[in-house]
Design a protein around this nucleic acid. Sequence first.
DNA 1: ACACGAACGTCAC
DNA 2: CGTTCGTGT
Length: 806
Amino acid sequence: MGISGLLPLLKDIQVNKHLSEYAGQTIAVDAYVWLHRGTYACATEIATGRKTTKYVDYAMHRVRILRHFKIEPYLVFDGGPLPAKKGTEVDRKKRRDENLARAKALAGQGKHSQAREYYVKCVDVTPQMAYQLIKALRAENVAYVVAPYEADAQMAYMERLSLVSGILTEDSDLLVFGCKHVLFKLDTTENTVIAISRTDFASLISSTSGISLLGWSDVQFRAMAILSGCDYLPSIPGIGLKTAWTLLRKHKTAENVIRAVMMEGKKAVPQGYLKSFRLAETVFLHQRVYDPVFERLVHLMDVSDEEQWDEEKEAYVGMYLEPSLAKQIAKGDICPITLLPMEDINPTFVPRALRPLRMNTSAVHTPEVKGKGKGKMIAASEKSKGTSLLTFFTPKAKLESAPRGLPQPVRAQTDPRKTGTVAGRSSGKRTLAELMDEDVLAKRKKRNEEDELRRSPSHTSIATSRFFRVPPTTAEKVTDVSNDVSDTESVAGPSTLALMKQGKENVPCLDDDCGEISEEDPDPVTQEEGYMSPSPSYSKWDSPEMSSPTRPRIYGAGNSLSDDDDFDADILSSPPSAARRPKSQGTPSRSPGRILVHGTPTCPKRIRDVAPENAPGPDLRAMFEDWEEGTSDIDEGGEDSMGSMASSSGPVTPVCAGQPAGRCVDDIFDEVTPDDEEIETQAVTARNERVANGWWEKWACSSRTPSARPSKVGSLRRRETTITADGRHRSIAIQQSRTRDLPQGRDLRSAARKSLSHLHEVEASSKNAHKGEIKARTGSSTSVSERPQEILTSAKARLAAFRYVV
DNA sequence: ACACGAACGTCAC
DNA sequence: CGTTCGTGT
């Protein structure tokens, strides 16, 4: 989805890169992708409502892999639905239900393997599941943020701010919006990714596709993508990427292209297409995202004063949420969809901080960690230079690693154990290369085994697997890596990688007791296979040189960059915001990290763009019958990147480059089809209603994981969400275990209500737009919710409320 | 040539 | 869910 065919088109500028090439950088990760894949392993459990957190393991495994290569992942979660995609959501929900029904039917007949096939198809990643991962991220001090709307826009924004230096996703369309470095297809066997850099677009000249983007501005590139069909707007039938490219090349602007196509008359241009095109463009350019620095919602790209802005656009880019609410959503404490306190669907899942073994902690670098807390921002800001920091700290790293004297022995104790159990070998010394090699081999073996099993269910395969099958092809890469990392690796503990790769993530166990073991037990070998708890590997990433500077402890317990304790010893006990966040970084600028935690102090609320208007949110698709599709991509507009190619069209800052012209065209268009508006409006209205209903049905009533599941631990819990008959009135009851939390609860409630009222308005306004009324309401709701002080003061109570320590 | 629908394989266990 | 394959204009 995204932009179908775009990746193949850009094949020639795809570069295979080894993860080690990104050492020292912070990379934004589309968390949804990992979560979704992670559900594969436990689709049946999820679909049938059983508790599981296997999907967390999958994601954390990848987090560890990145960290192994000194890449600091910054996970970005999807938030609430945008009007443009609501229809899609509803339709998906339908399909999921159908698949679930089939699965259950099959399961009932005992056909479990077949049933699983459908279970897999009906699994949906919910914010509550994401929250489980967030808990694990907090425990390990991994930066994350929940986007108010789409993760793609959020990631694009973060790259623009230099909070991250690249974006790891499986979705191709981030490119359309000017992200500079997009990484695809993380291969955990080879530890590689496919990188596409915006700056390489120009060199795409006569590639296999035969098209050139030399001199194309972001505006044009985006237009090409939208015209060819994107998540927000289906293409004019018969127009794909190539055609769009050809047409744009000829007519320069989208307006011209659309006009030309209409004139030609060969293709059926849907009514209102130009207008819809503009809306889609707006979503790409100005979608609301969360600014981790200022802790409030902002537009991906500022909306210029000249830009024509109306309620429709306002609704399309995502409604404004006041800072305190936005922040809590960003942290994961409030569900971005229901706007109610996040329900912990599995309170017994309590990820523990993977504390390095004590000896390691004390013996090896300790001091480093804090000092550099702030280094994170530095790292982020210098991201383009990526290696700068790395270089800076390199000397130290080498020093540490070089003399394997002290640190080594310490590790030695931990490593051998790991090595032995994991690798299953007796040899005590192994180089990283060897370990990796083995790991790779193991994976391959596994693959081969599987293949063979498929072909012939005999045991031969097993025998094979027992021995080394050496596909020489891999040797190269592995070797390279080892060279780069070996030093630090030795310090950190060679077995880490192997452990990670073993597949069993030691993520905190689902069982209550498990965590303790890994935490306290000096010898945390818990799993049957001898897999270590994840903790051991953790220490490695903490090697001072890299981690401190790079690691943004954003919303995690780690927020307290300034922590005085080594590692995150306190992480365990400190829930989300528990972090002590004393020292405020001198530069309030971008230290994604703790900012949230501090929360309070920094909140400069600039009411500058506070424009909580709501407007009807028509579904673009609705305008053209019900086209399906829809995915999850949004883009950002990093316009400036175009510098090199801005030659031909437009201004470097496309923000509104096309607007004026567009407006004119738009007007013309509208004039031509005066009645369309009305028709459209009706269609939109109907659609919205359906969408809204479906939306509430799906989310408000809490589908898969019924809210009925009460969290037994003292924490905020939602007792119920009620939708009255007319579907417009919702009463929310939040029950809190602690009375002192009440203020917070009230706050949340009012905030939620307010937001809900927004939704209502949007909904209602789409029916009979009474703009005056809308504005009035908006105003009032805004004032109502503005109680930052109160929210702040209740911070402690909130923290306490979220302590899920039993 | 291009767009689109169908088919297969990925992911992962 | 994505890319390849085949067929349709």
